[in-house]
Computed example of a mutant assay.
Amino acid sequence: MTRPNPRLRALFLGAGYAFLYVPILVLMVLSFNDSAMMTTWTGFSLRWYHELFADRALLEAARLSLIIAAFTATAAVVIGTWAGYVLARMGRFRGFALFVGLVSAPLVIPEVVLGISLLLMFVELSDLLGWEGSNGAFTIWVGHVILSMAYVSVIIQSRVRDLDRSLEEAALDLGASPVKVFFQIVLPLIAPALVSAWLLAFTLSLDDVVIASFLTGPGHTTLPLEVFSRVRLGLKPEINALATLFMLLVAVFVLIANRVQNRRGYSA
């Protein structure tokens, strides 16, 4: 069996990375362009960053999106961890098929269908309960939790199934309650999966457009909706500045996480 040529492999690898990251680098470079034209470079400038921080609507949309994403990720991890643990440890029970279908439904249902269904649900609830509040941050949060919870449950379920069950059984034999076993043995062991699930849920919420477009209300525009509405009228360099700041923020978090992980590895 012949091995692939190292140069050819490096060429394909470089082409793949270029396809993924060159557009992002171009966007970051254009965020420092002094010209309002996206395709014309006239000189280095921080003009669009100044305009970005003076744009109250865009900053408020970013603040709302970050808040909703944080609360969404937290709630999705709590619910998804419970659902994933039940699927991995409780075996088959009455209504198991229905439970699996309800948990995994957001994974296969188109977001348009999910958004319309949630909108109709909130309309019916408002008529039934006499709720006078309009759609807003709460309804967006509910929709994002339902979507993200399904992804979290898949991650937790796969991680729990890989655990050595003898540790839990030994703790139970020594007199520990199932709740104590879960919090003192299972949760510490699946902590990396919990962090990964939280970050994934945070990203899904921050990136969502479809569900938020159905569940949003006046004065509650998320960042993706604000950007999407502006892009339809023409690209503006301040959007490049916003994207650059978000990518730098993500890079900082990734570096911090890697440094913490490496320190824990050395200490172990």
Rank of each mutant, 00 (worst) to 15 (best):
L30R: 01
S31H: 03
F32I: 13
F32Q: 08
F32S: 01
N33W: 00
N33F: 00
D34L: 10
D34R: 15
S35W: 00
S35T: 12
S35L: 01
A36W: 04
A36G: 14
A36D: 14
M38S: 06
W41V: 11
T42S: 08
T42E: 07
T42P: 09
F44A: 04
S45K: 05
S45L: 10
S45R: 12
S45E: 05
S45F: 00
L46Y: 06
R47M: 09
R47T: 14
R47K: 13
R47Q: 12
W48N: 06
H50T: 13
H50G: 15
H50C: 06
L52H: 02
L52R: 03
L52N: 03
L52I: 15
A54I: 08
R56Q: 11
R56S: 06
R56F: 01
A57F: 04
L58S: 03
L58G: 03
L58Y: 00
L59N: 03
A61P: 07
A61E: 08
A62G: 09
A62R: 06
R63P: 04
R63L: 14
R63H: 08
R63W: 08
L64C: 05
S65T: 15
L66F: 05
I67R: 11
I67H: 05
A69C: 10
A70Q: 10
A70C: 12
A70F: 11
F71T: 08
F71E: 07
F71Q: 07
T72L: 06
A73E: 09
T74V: 15
T74I: 15
T74Y: 01
A75S: 12
A75V: 15
A76K: 05
A76H: 03
V77A: 03
V77T: 14
V78E: 07
V78K: 01
V78W: 01
I79Y: 00
I79C: 07
I79R: 00
I79P: 04
T81E: 02
T81I: 14
W82R: 07
A83G: 08
G84Q: 07
G84I: 13
V86C: 09
A88P: 12
R89A: 04
R89I: 11
R89Y: 02
M90W: 06
G91P: 12
G91I: 12
G91C: 08
R92F: 11
F93V: 13
R94T: 11
R94N: 10
G95Q: 03
F96T: 10
F96V: 07
F96H: 15
